[in-house]
């Protein structure tokens, strides 16, 4: 693709960088004790925790770096970190 004038870009381009490949531990949203409070989504530095139609939350593993903040901050302790199998 030809360069933009002056090194500019329009939104959406960062999504081509799939940061999920960085992950060593994976958050598993168990939806067991979840109260759907949404703290996991709020604290995620990636903004990759999304609410699905059933109002439960899930991490988008394309981008989740596996930092574990959602798991640590979950008041219901309903997100478990599991080692990625590579």
């Amino acid at each position: 693709m030809a360069l933009s004038v002056g090194c500019t870009a329009r939104p959406g381009k960062s999504r081509s960088n799939r940061t999920g490949s960085w992950r060593v531990f994976r958050p598993v949203f168990k939806h067991d004790k979840c109260t759907k409070c949404g703290i996991c989504a709020l604290v995620c530095p990636e903004g990759c925790v999304e609410q699905s139609e059933d109002e439960f939350y899930e991490a988008n593993y394309e981008f989740c770096k596996g930092c574990g903040l959602c798991s640590d901050e979950c008041p219901a302790e309903d997100i478990e970190m599991e080692q990625e199998e590579k």
Binding site: V5, G6, C7, R10
Partner: peptide, 24 residues
């Protein structure tokens, strides 16, 4: 030619890796 505008957001002043800097 292009401007900062909430109706059509553009990022100005990004950084260029060695893959792009020389061409800019």
């Amino acid at each position: 030619y292009q401007r900062l505008d909430a109706a059509d957001p553009i990022s100005f002043g990004m950084f260029a890796s060695p893959d792009y800097y020389m061409e800019f």
